[in-house]
Write a protein that binds this DNA or RNA. Structure first.
Length: 643
DNA sequence: ATAGGGTTAG
């Protein structure tokens, strides 16, 4: 009411019925204010400062206007707010907000939306929400601003809640709304529901909505749907390509990602940082070191991009080239917690535990605060180096030292640590004491330890736990039946085989990949389609003969280690990694490292074989299986024969 | 005035 009286002094309007009852909803024409001679010069000054982006002078002018009870128009205020935003001037922004609301006019929805947006950009969601609640009228922009604020803050429930309220109030979402709210989906049913409404409104033709749809379908693991949306598109932009390439890479379809990347270039798009990050991530997944190196050459111009550098670092780590990884790491102009975690875990996984722990020490001194994943790498390093005491120390004190609660994966590392040290009973005890429920991975860790330490009874127990949680796990069935066979428990063997048949579980054939001269050669157990297979087999047989001369016995009884179920002697002889190693020796010059990626875990016989080849033939061999790295050099393996 | 894409573990 005070505001109203002020207003009357300036323009002295004839009060109508409406102005008496709804003064705040019916603003007087602002031109009436500007016409007053004594105020116009001040407003002109203010306007000038706003457009000149002279924040201090504009704020001063605004203050004088406030004292005289005169006001400028919404456009000018919106300029001033832009100026506050550009300078990060939070306090000044709040003053503008106060000023705008003291005019006695109800600020236009347009102007309040700009204020809303200002609070969102300043990350003051509470203020934004307060202002939003006070708005007499909210249009699609107001709602969308709130939805995008909450979905960016990962407060998905709130973002979706706003969409529902908006619909209830009869405000129709537009393409801006949908492209924001899609990121806040809480599951596939929800996503399908949103997708339906988008199709009904015809907004699925918008490129922003499309890229958001492609992205979110990929994030929920439905790459097929993402591809369908992508393929139905007639025109697209770089972001849409990036969405589908990134989606493929994230859903472990590296091949698909690389093919899409080729198509994208053919369609005339220039890749940017986001594209190249996904391409690197595809190389990482496929262990394509040489292709990754080529990408490295092409991203030199983006060498200040942190995310891209992190992806590059990870590529070198996961392709087993720690020299290159270190080269990238030390040259990075900026390193965040991901860079450090990647490097620490990379060193540990590739057998450089000491270096990993040293790096962690320097991170504690001069790096960012370690997070959940950093600690995983540290525990893994301790486990790998057999540092039981250090591992326990970090595990027990991680909450106290770094403020991180131990999760299932941390327990997994400690179980691995105890298992490696042969303390199986302690490992089992820990599993039963875990605060979070053990999952199949947890039990598989225990099973690994049982395998190495030949604890049959505990292995059977662990295998049964795995199968309860993951009834499709072919490797575990095979392992279980092998254990029974080894103990002559034929009825149990038959039972396991029967369950496998009933559940339709089929074992995946062992497959190894090796990159030679920009070609990827795949060797699949039982498949003879490689053009040089005869020569490879011949050389493999010769090699086996040579190795037998130094004590290699291919008929080893690796029942407990044979996760592939390929342990019959004839197939053992032709395990895919053996073919790949021989092929690598044939095609790669002596000083080159033979790098192989495998889909299944390496068996004990191949492990012995690789160690001997490395020693006898003076080759460095790196084999990456789904969870561990094996660097074979001079008769020893970086895994310390524990995997 | 409001919108979409990239990196660490599992």
């Amino acid at each position: 009411m005070k505001a109203i009286s002020k207003l009357k002094c300036i323009v002295t309007p004839q009060p109508s019925v409406e102005t008496v009852f709804t003064p705040l909803l019916r603003p007087y024409s602002l031109t009436a204010v500007a016409k007053l001679p004594e105020s116009s010069s001040l407003i002109d000054e203010f306007t000038k400062f706003c457009y000149q982006r002279d924040l201090p002078k504009a704020m001063k002018a605004m203050d004088s206007m406030q004292k005289q009870g005169i006001w400028a128009d919404s456009i000018t205020y919106s300029e001033l707010i832009k100026c506050c935003l550009a300078r990060g001037a939070v306090e000044q922004g709040k003053l503008v907000h106060k000023h705008v609301f003291s005019t006695g006019y109800e600020p236009k929805t347009f102007l309040i939306n700009i204020l809303l947006n200002m609070y969102v950009r300043f990350n003051l969601l509470g203020e934004a929400q307060k202002l939003f609640d006070q708005m007499p009228e909210r249009n699609v922009v107001s709602w969308t601003t709130m939805i995008s604020a909450f979905s960016n803050a990962k407060l998905n429930d709130k973002a979706l809640g706003f969409l529902i309220l908006m619909l209830r109030e009869g405000v129709r979402p537009n393409m801006f709304t949908y492209s924001s709210v899609l990121r806040a989906c809480d599951g596939l049913p929800n996503l399908r529901q949103l997708h339906c409404s988008i199709i009904k409104t015809g907004l699925d033709s918008d490129v922003f909505v499309r890229s958001a749809l492609i992205d979110i379908y990929s994030k929920w693991g439905e790459l097929q749907n993402a591809l369908r949306i992508f393929n139905e598109m007639l025109t697209g932009d770089l972001v849409v390509w990036n969405s589908i390439i990134g989606g493929s890479a994230q859903n472990s379809d590296g091949d698909g990602a690389l093919n899409l990347f080729k198509s994208m270039k053919r369609a005339g798009f220039l890749p940017n940082q986001a594209t190249l990050t996904s391409v690197l991530s595809a190389c990482t997944g496929l262990a394509l070191l040489e292709l990754g190196r080529q990408v490295h050459v092409h991203i030199m111009k983006f060498n200040r991009d942190l995310i891209l550098n992190n992806a590059l670092l990870d590529m070198y780590c996961k392709c087993g080239s720690l020299e290159d990884a270190n080269f990238v790491f030390i040259r990075m102009v900026e390193r965040d917690v991901i860079s450090w975690s990647t490097m620490i875990a990379g060193l540990a996984q590739n057998g450089y535990s000491g270096e990993a722990l040293k790096l962690f020490e320097s991170m504690k001194v001069s790096g960012p605060r370690p997070n959940y994943i950093t600690i995983l790498g540290v525990l893994f390093a301790c486990s790998h180096a057999g540092l039981v005491e250090d591992g326990w120390y970090y595990f027990r004190l991680m909450k106290e030292l770094f403020g991180i609660d131990p999760g299932r994966e941390h327990y997994g590392c400690i179980i691995d640590l105890l298992g490696r040290a042969g303390k199986l009973d302690k490992a089992v005890k820990l599993i039963h004491e875990m605060e979070c429920k053990p999952d199949a991975v947890t039990w598989r860790t225990l099973l690994s330890a049982c395998r190495v330490h030949c604890n049959v009874e505990l292995a059977i127990y662990a295998a049964k736990q795995i199968l309860k949680l993951d009834p499709e796990d072919a490797g575990t069935y095979i392992l279980l039946s092998n254990i029974y066979a080894n103990s002559q428990r034929w009825e149990d063997v038959a039972e396991v085989r029967r369950i496998m048949r009933v559940r339709g579980v089929r074992k995946e054939p062992g497959c190894s990949w090796i990159e030679v001269d920009k070609w990827i050669h795949a060797f699949i157990l039982g498949d003879n389609s490689h053009p040089q297979i005869d020569e490879i087999s011949r050389q493999l047989n010769q090699l086996i003969q040579r190795l037998m001369g130094v004590g290699y016995n291919p008929d080893s009884n690796f029942v407990l280690q044979d996760l592939e179920g390929e342990q019959r002697e004839d197939s053992l002889r032709y395990h895919s990694e053996k073919l790949a190693i021989v092929f690598g020796m044939m095609r790669l010059s002596g000083e080159k490292t033979i790098r192989i990626r495998k889909n299944l875990r390496i068996c004990g016989d191949c492990h012995v074989f690789a160690k001997l080849v490395a020693k006898m033939e003076h080759r460095i061999i790196v084999i990456r299986d789904p969870i561990r790295y094996h660097h074979f050099h001079d008769g020893v393996c970086s895994c310390g024969d524990y995997w």
